[in-house]
Nucleic acid binder design. Structure first.
Lengths: 338, 338
DNA sequence: CATCTGGATTGAAACGTTTTATAATTCCTC
DNA sequence: GAGGAATTATAAAACGTTTCAATCCAGATG
């Protein structure tokens, strides 16, 4: 097993010291043009690549960014990842991806362990009940961290979010404007910040319109299709039956769509449904889903950009960036039939 | 900036040499129970984590797996990633994710650069025109590589695939059995191995049934929704019009569904459509899409398992594993109307 | 010509591990 | 209790960089 080329071989070939080679690579000192060229030639001709491990060990920091994510399989996240990856690549950082599985124990494990790779920074979409706040606050020094998409319990560092409350508000307003008065909501897990924000938007719209809120019409789901399905089924059997359902994400909206179909209720004529996320498929459900668009790619990209700034030393006060959402009207809502 | 705990501090606290500490950590030599406990206690009480960088440097290998992927944003891949991640985690490997963007230049760049992190192994879904074969064959030694999902040009190492030909064949058979004789196909980019395999399955079914193949009915797409859309539009304007379309992935099938809707053709009554992939949303299109299921999670998991075997030294001949596909019948196909 | 100056170059230490060769200890056996 | 054989423990070298202090050198200055 032939070991790769080292800086020493370059130094020998270019007839300089290894310090000089290092200096030309990192542009960390002036070196005479003549030598510089000799070194560069040697590097090119031998196909040398500095060992990131040695470099990382010495500098106590690598060029990796580690990103914690609840689950790649959740169709909202890939766009976020892509946003991160694109700007990371541009800044020459590399992405290590960890799935916490929404389990804060697995998250902790990853957080602890990846530390010993000395990443340049952290990007974390906190899991349910994440202890990232205590994890990172313990070590006041250490690489910068930005929290994405969900505000973790107790976290007061940088965070970039999406306008959950406002999005939910506008979705609900839309329903109200169409004449609905019996509005139900299928929320996300209510220990998730963004889930409660969406619920709050819903409630605010209702109370501003003086429409009473029926506690039975608030069903807690888990942001998964199946939970939307069961919640909708429950809702659709109630008397009086709600005329519209706001599902706090598209997956659950899909479940609701299914449930309506099973119960024999036609959407949107007999039941209006609106979602949240605007996943790719939302255009193609039957009927096409009216939903609140979340800028996933932007979310990832701005978080990564913010992180990159921190890494090079930005010392501003912690930021809280919230990206706008936008209602996308399609065909899953209509005026109530009655 | 307080540096983290090192092995030296553990050694001091436990009053042993650093070599001993290393041995208890790695179980690489017998150490007396008494000392062992002292060391373990010290580790626990100081919260020590060995530096992966130092370890990797010394051993010339880390516990990272790097995975190349054309694009996270393609909804087929997350399941594959998840499969990989789950078994990687189980084997204590960590995943570095790289998006080649389907650009073999970006892929090469990543391949070259990640090398200097000394990953334990590589998992690659080759980009279009990938030169992974030449890249890796140059260095006969080095960490093991397994190729996923697509057979890269010239690659003759381990590879795990999906039964593309058979899947396409069974989809086409289904169409034939329903009575269709004017069958069109929207293929993937034909320099992709899996795209031609699917086309071959289609052709074989037709020729076995003695149904002639109209060259105009073979349209090349790019595995993206938009290309399926334009191809379908073209197809639906032809005379005679095909009565069924086999789209070689679900994204393109979706595009075709859209095109049909735009042209005013009802699916399945006036045009049958079948896809390939069985993405999550396939159940929920209008009408629900009949499609060929690909075991994405399995694909990732078995590839990772194979890689893990190689890493610990399995020296068997290169394997070629092909995972079965399966037709999922839903409502986007019906007998032809004429 | 000697001295000084300041930039270019270098040697060597350090980063935190693993691992090998050697030294120290323990345990038998006589 | 001595001698030798196992067994355990250790010191030191290596992994491939970066970086600091020290050296070197060319040219300017007196």
């Amino acid at each position: 097993m032939s070991r790769p080329i080292t800086i020493r071989q370059i130094a020998k070939k270019a007839n300089v010291s290894i310090g000089t080679v290092s200096h030309v690579i990192n542009e960390t000192a002036n070196v005479r043009e003549k030598l510089r060229i000799r070194v560069l030639d040697a590097i090119r001709s031998l196909g040398y690549q500095p060992s990131q491990l040695a470099r990382g060990l010495r500098r106590n920091q690598t060029s990796m960014l580690v990103m914690m994510i609840p689950d790649v399989t959740n169709p909202f996240f890939p766009a976020v990842i892509r946003g991160v990856e694109d700007v990371a690549f541009q800044y020459k950082y590399r992405l290590v991806l960890c799935n916490s599985d929404n389990d804060h124990r697995k998250e902790s494990l990853y957080l602890n362990e990846m530390q010993s790779y000395r990443p340049a920074g952290w990007l974390v979409i906190p899991s349910v009940d994440s202890d990232m706040a205590t994890h990172f606050s313990a070590k006041t020094s250490g690489p910068p961290v930005v929290c994405l998409d969900r505000q973790a319990q107790g976290w007061n560092g940088d965070v970039v979010l999406v306008a959950n409350e406002a999005g939910a508000y506008s979705a609900t307003r839309h329903l109200l404007r169409m004449g609905h008065r019996q509005l139900a909501v299928i929320t996300g897990p209510l220990h998730l910040e963004n889930a409660v924000e969406r619920l709050n938007g819903f409630k605010r719209a209702l109370s501003e319109a003086n429409v009473p809120i029926d506690a039975n019409y608030i069903q807690e789901g888990r942001f998964e299709r199946s939970s939307g399905h069961v919640a909708a089924k429950r809702l659709l059997c109630m008397l009086p039956r709600p005329t519209a359902i706001f599902a706090c994400n598209d997956l659950m909206a899909l479940g609701a769509l299914l449930a309506a179909r099973e119960v024999g209720l036609h959407c949107p004529d007999e039941i209006s449904i609106v979602g949240f996320d605007n996943l790719d498929f939302a255009e193609f459900t039957a009927p096409p889903l009216t939903t609140v668009h979340q800028p996933g790619y932007q979310l990832g990209a701005t978080a990564a950009r913010l992180l990159a700034d921190r890494i090079v030393g930005s010392r501003e006060a912690p930021q809280r960036i919230v990206l706008p959402t936008e209602l996308r009207m399609r065909n899953s809502v209509a005026p109530p039939s009655g």
